[in-house]
């Protein structure tokens, strides 16, 4: 796929979200459901890679770009990630005071909550793809518990999950 076309598709998702993972529902609708550029599993893997690295959570868009178009696609993903950030400049120049307006705050709150809702709705198909055994359900539950109730960093949860998956496989071989 042409990297610029891919950039436009990815930009649509990053422009339509107000937090790192909020673009996921838009990307899934466009890339998985409508256009079949990637599978649920690839999207899920991209999310894991994005969370395994330091830096902004939205970095998974780079991984999505790679799956859709190789390294030029990853470049398109990076460009789509950084482009919306430039919008903060006119906001600083012209709209700084309006950020304190109650109506603007209410609109932002509504958009953040709605994007959390649509992200949760998009998580369910990913869950169907990823949770196919009691061990997988256990790993998901323990990961959720660790992230909610402890200060363990995400990278350790991901590495621990990989180890938890590998141990039973290694024991079966023995």
């Amino acid at each position: 796929m042409n990297w610029f076309v891919l950039y436009i598709h990815l930009l649509q998702a990053t422009l339509g979200s107000f937090s790192g993972l909020a673009s996921m529902s838009i990307l899934r609708e466009d890339f998985v459901v409508q256009n079949h550029y990637l599978t649920d599993r690839q999207l899920n893997t991209a999310l894991v890679i994005g969370r395994s690295t330091p830096g902004p959570v939205g970095l998974y868009v780079v991984s999505v770009g790679y799956y859709a178009g190789g390294y030029p696609g990853a470049f398109a993903g990076w460009l789509a990630l950084v482009t919306p950030a430039l919008l903060v400049i006119p906001m600083i120049q012209y709209a700084g005071r309006k950020a304190e307006s109650p109506a603007v705050k209410r609109m932002l709150r509504a958009v953040v909550l709605a994007s959390a809702g649509v992200s949760l709705a998009a998580t369910l198909p990913l869950g169907v793809d990823a949770l196919h055994s009691p061990i997988a359900y256990g790993i998901a539950a323990v990961s959720l518990g660790l992230l909610l109730f402890t200060k363990v960093e995400t990278i350790w949860v991901i590495l621990g999950s990989a180890a938890a998956g590998l141990i039973p496989a290694a024991m079966q071989r023995i």
Partner: peptide
Amino acid sequence: KLVQVAVSAVLASSVGILLSAFWTTIRPY
């Protein structure tokens, strides 16, 4: 094969990661 096993486990954990991200997002509200 081993990479596939590890990836499957990590994908399961991503469900937990996404659910925790959902809660982290809505908790302040």
